[in-house]
Write a protein that binds this DNA or RNA. Sequence first.
DNA 1: TGAAAGTAGTTGTAAAATGCAACCACTACG
DNA 2: CGTAGTGGTTGCATTTTACAACTACTTTCA
Lengths: 163, 163
Amino acid sequence: MEPRSGCAINAAVEALGDHWSFLVLRDMVFGDRRYFRELLNGFIEGIASNILADRLKKLVAAGILTKEDAVRGRRARYSLTEAGVQTLPILFALGNWGLDWREGTPELRTRQELMRAEGPAFIEELMDELRVRHLDAPPVPREGPGPFERLEEAYRRARAEAD
Amino acid sequence: MEPRSGCAINAAVEALGDHWSFLVLRDMVFGDRRYFRELLNGFIEGIASNILADRLKKLVAAGILTKEDAVRGRRARYSLTEAGVQTLPILFALGNWGLDWREGTPELRTRQELMRAEGPAFIEELMDELRVRHLDAPPVPREGPGPFERLEEAYRRARAEAD
DNA sequence: TGAAAGTAGTTGTAAAATGCAACCACTACG
DNA sequence: CGTAGTGGTTGCATTTTACAACTACTTTCA
């Protein structure tokens, strides 16, 4: 596909900018989903299987994901590439905007609010953890819970408070 | 339009996430274009007039833009709302990603490279300037050129160097 | 070994979005 | 009054998306 221009913003929009690509990345990152069925069934927005298949194919072609064990009928795992990991700041910026300008269920707001409260260093921490999970980077030496665990924890606390 | 979920990322994608909305915002912000024809003729990617009309209408409906002087035949000016100004970090994140992971013409890379080099404070400065231009905020007291002028300058320097 | 359940998709068809070119109603200006 | 410019709209062809059913293959377990 020929890019419509040499603009960096346009390049990102062409690679990622449709209704589903960002949501696929969101679910891979924050839902830790890496298999076709996992993604298909996990989507709160309800994606069709052919659209998911198409988006995964395009994201792989664009170098944002890789696909392992590509044998038909066998569970094939999708992983983020470094380019995929680097989309996290975009997801954060999108979520941050949506948090201010659109309503959201209290549970779903929690994640974004925590990320915002923790600041930019937290985004870096999440990206490092993604490199461990998806790119076989050596584990980050750390005392206490990792960034995703802290998100989970905040989520549980918010739910407990809501009761 | 019913949102497909209460997720903040999904909210942003539904409001902004199609091939054109981000590019309209980009041209309004960085190209300082605020009129229909200006946008229509200015697009390096070549947008159709009905698509531009539709996107502007949707962005107004979503509270991201406002439209003044809406008399048919008279120049109608579009302005960013505060929600629109707040999309700048998203544009920055998209451009930053595109800069690393896609090719771009040297001229167009300049803007993004400067923004990256100047850091997060520069984004804030740009947003303040947008509030002056679009929201009638009082001018920012400042010695020397403003952030958009500095972008222009860097752009000119890059072109001069290329020759 | 053989049925059942699970895997990643594909296929067919309808609906929606997009792209293109021509056209429209109005205003500003000389 | 005529011409150029304004912000669009209209009609139609093409492309993309959505939904549901179906396929080919593997794994599990009796």
